[in-house]
């Protein structure tokens, strides 16, 4: 298999991170915000794996696993909140109305 160049991986990660960032900032729907967050987390994971491969250290992939665990719990909690909001009369899931939420 062709090797992926380290520099290209960093470039890809930076671009991916920025795209995710723009997504978090621009989308008002909470579902899309969560997806954009996942893209950002993946970018961070890519950097870890790439650095691990570059300096031949298994720690990179260990960190990737940690990010995976983090993403899993974040997504689970986030989606549970989304469902909860949806059931409580906020079907548009607009993040900008969150400031009026009580309790």
């Amino acid at each position: 298999m062709t090797a992926f160049p380290f520099n290209a991986a960093l470039l890809l990660a930076a671009l991916l991170f920025s795209i995710g960032l723009a997504g978090v900032l621009v989308r008002r729907n909470l579902v899309f915000m969560l997806m954009s967050l996942d893209i950002m987390l993946n970018a961070a994971g890519l950097v870890f794996v790439a650095a691990g491969a570059r300096w031949q250290d298994a720690s990179g992939q260990v960190m990737f696993l940690m990010i995976l665990a983090l993403a899993a719990s974040e997504t689970a909690v986030g989606l549970a909140i989304i469902l909860c909001l949806h059931a409580h009369g906020r079907p548009s899931l607009d993040a900008d109305t969150g400031n009026l939420l009580r309790g």
Binding site: L21, L25, M33, G98, N99
Partner: peptide, 13 residues
């Protein structure tokens, strides 16, 4: 402190 998550994210960035 307007309570809008996206603004907070913007400030973080």
């Amino acid at each position: 402190q307007n309570g809008r998550v996206r603004w907070y994210a913007g400030w973080i960035v």
